[in-house]
Design a binder for these strands. Structure first.
Lengths: 317, 317
DNA sequence: TATTTATACGTAAGTACTTACGTATATTAT
DNA sequence: ATAATATACGTAAGTACTTACGTATAAATA
């Protein structure tokens, strides 16, 4: 009958809300039935003040894990109902020290008795089950305080995207793609230099034949990115000419290419991979960092490219 | 740090709300980050329609366990965003049959992929714990569907009240209390009859000396109720003159007195207890029923009291 | 057949939070 | 000492539900 039973994890949020709404409504009825003019939403603030007064609004919001605005609104109501009182902190003019009022303290024993009854009712119900909801909630809360749900989902999506990207090797018929993918970013951020023109027009000769390698990233059968590994000497290779189609950026194409190129270098017995880039290319630099590259100092006057103003290196163990 | 950890059961409602709010907010961010124009609150309705269309508003509200108004509002938004369409049911002019629209169906595969990622994220988190929150919630939901929290609390309060009521036996100095407690209700609902005057003015002679018994209920040291057991013959006793101070009604005083009187009858070897009452005294009749009395037919012309128009009997085994 | 009652739905207003923004005071940096 | 920044708090508006109420249609009853 109940969709949520079938849906499980997905509807966790809606389900928690439904349950909490019900408990809150029942709570309201409990106070009414016992002729106590009290609302469930006042409970956290009122209880806190009954145990640890005096407290300020912000202090309570931290203790309760809700916004200060929520506390402020409850405090306003409780002041209106004369259940609490507040005086300005003499040592801090911004802060208001709140405590139970006289009538609040008078209410306390009666309402504490009721709270105890409620605790017993919930306790009896919970302890008749195998799994304890309080423990489960605490665990979920702890997990969420480590990583929020959106962070967790972002990671899973990244992994999924990474799996979807296929790496394919160089072949003559992909030479044109290698050129156009690289022209796109070079023209967007810089200017095509003589060296670009030379290498991109004949990658087979200038990269592959020289002991290097060119890899392509494929998504749904379409070439969406590329990256080259250029041989410098027996121990050193350069990661260069990484390009990802703008429409597919953020889908882990670059990461997959980077990992594949590093793996290729490792297979060829490289001890290090270096690269040159430009400070403007912030997403690219972040990716290099994530791949394990660390910045190194070099004389960029010697570089083949004018745009080079950053060098990075990855030691392979 | 967190008050709720210390409070346990009592703050269950606030705590569930806090958690659900967080999940909903994260959910909103997830859709945004993936460039899907969708809100978490749409999920239950949209999902339901993707699986079981066409459906009406009320049908969905039942499946989801929320009010039809909530569904109606979500439906209005989804219609506005053109994600669903609705046509009037040809066989029922009140009902609107809702289904995914074309653009809704187009969105479906993309959003389903995301739902799957979310489910995986939550699943991974949950399954790294000992106790499963989904199971806990289901159990709590089931418990609440049997008895709501306010019902459970009401029962506990009843028991607590029952424990607080002390039963004390008759003594001459309580005779005046026996009279005034009974006068109160008789004068409120009926008129004091000759027989009342006789019995209430000298209960020692007319009840106790005749083989009966009078019990009093004490709350915080104060006499707040009374009830008599009148001997009819060796096998039969009558429960009579039950009276509870109006200020203490609803605090299980009558129940405690009734139970005590029945117990006293049992001890004296009674095979049955009967009573006479009046249809107007609805709370009293409910109590008698709860104590196990069942209505019997008798000729009330023969009764000692004009107000008697109901008779009840309890068989003691 | 006429009338009452039940159902399906919509809208308005309330609730208990949130985010966003503004103000006053305190703290830190220059 | 002055300016910039941080903190404590309040208020307004938004959110995702609720309850309460109103309307149209269907079903039940007289």
């Amino acid at each position: 009958m109940d969709l949520f039973n079938h849906l499980g994890e997905l509807a966790l949020g809606s389900r928690l809300k439904r349950l909490s709404d019900q408990i809150m409504r029942d709570g309201s009825r409990i106070y009414q039935a016992n002729d106590i003019k009290f609302e469930p939403k006042w409970f956290p603030v009122f209880y806190l003040l009954s145990e640890h007064a005096p407290l300020g609004v912000t202090e309570m919001s931290q203790d309760l894990g809700v916004s200060h605005a929520a506390v402020s609104q409850v405090v306003r109501e409780l002041l209106q109902k004369k259940l609490i009182t507040g005086v300005m902190d003499p040592s801090d003019g911004r802060k208001r020290l709140l405590s139970l009022s006289e009538s609040g303290s008078e209410l306390l024993p009666k309402i504490k008795e009721l709270w105890n009854d409620i605790a017993v009712a919930i306790h009896e119900m919970i302890n008749s089950h195998q799994s304890n909801i309080i423990d489960s909630i605490r665990e979920v809360e702890n997990s969420f305080s480590e990583h929020s749900l959106d962070e967790r989902v972002a990671l899973i999506i990244q992994e999924r995207c990474l799996d979807q990207v296929k790496i394919v090797p160089y072949s003559e018929d992909l030479a044109e793609q290698f050129k156009s993918l690289n022209y796109a970013w070079i023209q967007k951020y810089f200017q095509v230099e003589e060296m670009d023109e030379l290498v991109l027009s004949n990658p087979g000769n200038h990269i592959v034949a020289e002991g290097g390698q060119i890899l392509f990233a494929q998504l749904d059968g379409k070439i969406v990115g590329t990256c080259a590994l250029i041989k410098l000497d027996d121990d050193s290779f350069e990661l260069a000419k990484m390009a990802v189609d703008e429409k597919y950026q953020g889908r882990q194409v670059g990461k997959k290419l980077g990992l594949a190129v590093i793996e290729a270098a490792r297979k060829r017995g490289a001890k290090q991979v270096i690269l040159e880039s430009n400070k403007k290319l912030i997403p690219a630099l972040n990716l290099y960092k994530k791949l394990g590259f660390v910045p190194i100092c070099t004389d960029h006057q010697k570089s083949m490219y004018q745009r080079a103003n950053v060098s990075m290196q990855l030691e392979l163990t």
